[in-house]
């Protein structure tokens, strides 16, 4: 069992950072709503606020790690230009997709949207984390600010969802490949 370094980086970007961020988003939305509700059934403890502070900081790190690895590690491999006359485009995913009308939309719509909309996730969640950490329990007293924080958390989730969905489909139609192989295990021959 082996994996190429490019595929490993894609895995780290998509599953390590992106998917984990998406998983964390639903929890963040729920906890933000619960901890800042003006009349909670039981008052939240300081420990719950501390936990959500750390949770949101971890989300900020994940979101920035996802877009930065996406833009500066994987995207250059995706958009690399093949040498003139190249027939095998498997190492040039953008050109591979664009070479077939059945797959060109994955680039012209999918990647073109993903590469920009993905950045709304870290921008929004950084804002959410800042406001929550700054206001804490007091956020329950700022009704409009609380609504804005929840809306930005939802926007971050949507942006990451769009990017993640298209990322998965792009990698399914034109996987990022190449680079040295890493041997993960030696399989037996049956």
């Amino acid at each position: 069992m082996e994996i190429t370094t490019r595929a490993l980086w894609t895995l780290i970007h998509g599953m390590g950072f992106g998917a984990l961020y998406l998983l964390a988003s639903s929890g963040a939305l729920l906890e933000l709503y619960r901890l800042t509700t003006p009349s909670p059934p039981s008052p939240p403890t300081p420990g719950q606020f501390r936990f959500l502070n750390m949770y949101l900081v971890a989300m900020v790190v994940l979101a920035w790690a996802a877009v930065l690895t996406g833009a500066y590690v994987i995207y250059p491999w995706y958009r690399a230009t093949p040498p003139p006359g190249a027939v095998d485009l498997s190492l040039f995913p953008q050109h591979l997709l664009m070479s077939n009308p059945a797959t060109s939309g994955w680039h012209s719509l999918g990647m073109e949207w993903k590469e920009h909309v993905a950045w709304f996730a870290p921008i929004s969640i950084t804002t959410v984390a800042f406001v929550f950490i700054r206001y804490g329990r007091d956020l329950a007293n700022h009704k409009q600010l609380r609504a804005a924080v929840l809306a930005f958390a939802a926007a971050s989730f949507i942006a990451a969802g769009i990017a993640g969905c298209f990322g998965a489909m792009l990698n399914k139609n034109a996987p990022i490949q190449g680079g040295p192989s890493i041997q993960l295990s030696h399989g037996g021959v049956e």
Binding site: I123, T126, T127, V131, H142, L145, A148, V149, F152
Partner: peptide, 11 residues
Amino acid sequence: NGSGAAAILSA
């Protein structure tokens, strides 16, 4: 609310 408004609007 100024600090929160600044963060929201600037984002």
